[in-house]
């Protein structure tokens, strides 16, 4: 089991604000978007055969006290130890999410090397990166209409379709309802699937 750090801005997130403004212009009548939020996700894996408990306490201190992960002037964070994160990941109230990662290896070895230089923590394996966009949406039928919004605001296809993810560099998964962390972990660890040829 891995530990997770989610970092978002407490000042205005201009990317999310612009995504909202730009995204609204792409919607067909009857569909509304009330909010978009963005978080960076860092996954801290234990070394193979190890447990996150061996490094989580030190890691938690580094998150709180250093500049590696969080600038308290402008960011807020949620640090979830392997036990705190539970079995599954639920979106914020009435939102759903698009989780995206680069198509290449998601490991950030440079960050790990720098972190260990200052905060030795035996047992820490890979640090992986991803990004999550939370959307608060409503279709004509009153439901969040996630499939429609993902089609319109998710993977970029052309000037009218897609915005948040460029599928040539990134790959994405839907976070709708409670998503087992095991699926999220696999999504981050396994090689990105081949790009589905556009219809």
């Amino acid at each position: 089991m891995s530990a997770v750090l989610l970092v978002g801005l407490k000042i205005t997130d201009l990317s999310a604000w612009t995504a909202l403004e730009t995204g609204r212009r792409l919607l067909e009548p009857g569909h509304t978007l009330s909010r978009i939020a963005r978080e960076q996700l860092l996954l801290f894996e234990p070394e193979p055969g190890g447990k996150a408990e061996t490094f989580e306490r030190t890691l938690g201190e580094a998150v709180r006290q250093s500049n590696f992960f969080v600038n308290p002037n402008k960011e807020r964070y949620r640090f979830l130890t392997s036990s705190e994160r539970g079995e599954s990941w639920s979106p914020p109230d009435s939102a759903w999410g698009i989780l995206s990662r680069v198509r290449e290896d998601t490991r950030d070895d440079g960050l790990k090397a720098r972190l260990l230089r200052e905060h030795p923590m035996p047992g820490l394996g890979a640090i992986r990166r991803a990004k999550v966009w939370w959307l608060w949406s409503r279709g004509p039928d009153g439901t969040p209409a996630a499939p429609y919004f993902r089609e319109t605001l998710g993977e970029l296809r052309d000037q009218r379709h897609g915005l948040l993810v460029n599928p040539h560099a990134e790959t994405a998964m839907l976070l709708h309802g409670a998503t087992p962390w095991s699926r999220v972990d696999r999504f981050l660890i396994q090689p990105a699937p081949a790009l589905r040829a556009a219809a």
Partner: peptide, 22 residues
């Protein structure tokens, strides 16, 4: 352009001006 918000070029690509240039 637009601070590379979302991704470099992503927001500008959706501008009406870019439509017209296309």
């Amino acid at each position: 352009a637009f601070q590379d918000r979302i991704r470099a070029g992503a927001v500008a690509a959706k501008l009406p001006a870019v439509d017209r240039i296309a």
